[in-house]
């Protein structure tokens, strides 16, 4: 069994923890619980690979998150479909840690269940295309495309 380190990247409250919970425990909580430092979860996929998922908090603090990204095999960028700013945060993080560009990555555009609040312009798609060619409109709440997104990343890893 191979272990692969995956990092969840995205600004505060975009739903990183919720997406991991949905994927690993198939569970969603409405209540917001701040992640302290890093939360680590594991999930075995198809008996050959084990994902070690690093759910990292504190992308607002410059440099603070960098040590946690070391040695990652794959990246999940997370943006919030209702918050265009969250896409800019992703671009800022990658500008700050250019080594991320070399890693297999997918992007989750999350909270798509909040249809009335979605606030999206084509320019944002372009911004995301600069990070990865694989993006998924997800909802941690309903589970839409979450499994699919993680599976896509695992395929990129092997």
């Amino acid at each position: 069994m191979k272990s692969k380190k995956i990092c969840m990247i995205g600004r505060f409250a975009v739903g990183k923890t919720s997406l991991v919970d949905r994927y690993v425990k198939n569970h969603f909580a409405d209540k917001y619980q701040t992640t302290v430092g890093v939360a680590i979860s594991t999930k075995i996929i198809d008996n050959t690979t084990k994902l070690i998922i690093w759910d990292i908090a504190g992308f607002e603090q410059e440099n603070h998150y960098k040590p946690y990204l070391r040695g990652a095999h794959g990246i999940i960028f997370v943006a919030d479909a209702t918050e265009p700013e969250s896409v800019h945060t992703l671009a800022d993080i990658v500008a700050d840690s250019p080594e991320l560009k070399a890693l297999p990555a997918v992007c989750f555009i999350n909270k798509t269940d909040r249809k009335d609040d979605i606030n999206w312009q084509p320019a944002l798609d372009q911004s995301i295309a600069g990070l990865t060619a694989h993006s998924f409109w997800t909802s941690a709440k309903t589970g839409d495309h979450v499994e699919e997104g993680f599976a896509a990343l695992s395929r990129l890893l092997s």
Partner: peptide, 29 residues
């Protein structure tokens, strides 16, 4: 670097699930 577990020794039974998480957590800390 990555916090991934290279190898482990000790009683495994209930641990199998968690030793990777423990090593990652130790590195995170």
């Amino acid at each position: 670097e990555s916090g991934l577990l290279i190898e482990h020794a000790g009683h495994e039974d209930a641990l199998m699930q968690d030793k990777e998480a423990i090593s990652a957590m130790l590195t995170a800390i």
